[in-house]
Design a protein around this nucleic acid. Structure first.
Lengths: 206, 206
DNA sequence: GCGACACTACACCGTGCAGTGTAGATACAG
DNA sequence: CTGTATCTACACTGCACGGTGTAGTGTCGC
């Protein structure tokens, strides 16, 4: 009779969301069954409904929680590879390599993108939130602005430059791997990243 | 009892494929029902099964037939906008604008991409065929090679340059519009294309 | 010990859908 | 006229899945 959701434990809630994301990513929204998610989470189906109410809210929660985690990981990556730069090309290559191989292999990031693209038309609010983009690209843009001030770069519009950098580094990787559905090997990724860095530096280098 | 498919008329076969593509693009593979396709095609469900055997083969046929048509349209576009070039930037902008707005608005091309990305993991042979890419990019590369010979461009690796050009022109459009799920308006598209042309010319211009 | 909560196991309902079987209508070739 | 192919309308099967209801078990705090 309770029409409110269960409080429950954060750990179990996270375990369900985690399992849900795995299954959704593997199967797509429509094919994914709540029973399969329950098994993957080691939890009864009833518990899932007590926690999340219905499949749709489960889906949205799983996506949103993952996006938040990925955003944190991105900031960490940004600091690590573009924190203090002496050799710009090497730094961008390191950044791109880490970024792109996370994209093309861990399946995590690219797969979530793939899932969101697939379901964009059916979950408009997911698109409207425009996650993944703004805060992440803003942080990268700030970094590029600093590099411009240091005289290492010539990016008068850092936000646009950040957009292009992201595109140049991951665009071909995502395209070729079908957003992680057909994984690439490391040497291929390196080659694609190096090309992207080259184009970026021609466009925005000093 | 006939375990062979029906011969039938090419027109009706095409009408079914057309309706199927519309419904698949709108709903995604799993959500799309054969009944809905039958209604959209103005045909009985039984006829669809007589023509195509099952949902999977219908899906693959619909995609493949569309890809072929799109490839032809692309070649036509290429000739029209990059046939004889005097002002390189203007020509690339015209090409990009036509290409990208077809992408972001007609829903046709981008939507098929979206559908393929969504289903890539479930239809491996669709991915393996790697359509959309090779012949189209090859044609663009040939054109860029000619422009290089004319001294208008500096693209020693025309195939890679073609890949980047496609990426720079359509990448941001596709990303922002979620492959057509959230259409963009014309001024936005123009802006994105112009930026892409600018980067491309910085990288590959004389 | 007792009540409140968390959770499982399981049966159950309704529905939507892929795919089949078939009877009958139309049309066309010989 | 007769056989063959195309097509529709429609009924029907089997199944998978979203979601619910419930009885029973374990676990706390008091």
């Amino acid at each position: 009779m309770a029409d409110t959701l269960r409080q429950g434990s954060p750990a179990k809630r996270a375990a369900i969301a985690r399992a849900a994301l795995d299954v959704f990513v593997r199967e797509g929204y429509a094919r994914a069954s709540v029973d399969a998610i329950a098994v993957a989470a080691g939890v009864s189906k009833r518990t899932i409904y007590d926690y999340y109410g219905d499949k749709e809210r489960l889906f949205l929660s799983a996506i949103r929680e993952t996006m938040a985690a990925q955003e944190a990981a991105f900031h960490e990556l940004l600091d690590r590879t573009l924190g203090e730069v002496t050799d710009l090309e090497a730094a961008l290559t390191a950044f791109g390599r880490a970024f792109a191989s996370e994209m093309a292999r861990s399946a995590e990031r690219a797969a979530v993108m793939r899932l969101m693209i697939a379901e964009a038309a059916h979950f408009p609010d997911l698109v409207r939130a425009a996650p993944e983009d703004r805060p992440v690209q803003r942080a990268l843009a700030d970094r590029l602005a600093e590099l411009t001030e240091q005289g290492l770069l010539d990016a008068p519009d850092p936000l646009e430059a950040a957009e292009f950098l992201g595109l140049l580094l991951t665009g071909r990787v995502n395209h070729r791997s079908w957003y992680g559905a057909a994984p690439l090997d490391d040497t291929e990724i390196d080659r694609l990243v190096a090309g992207g860095v080259w184009v970026f530096l021609r466009a925005y280098g000093r």
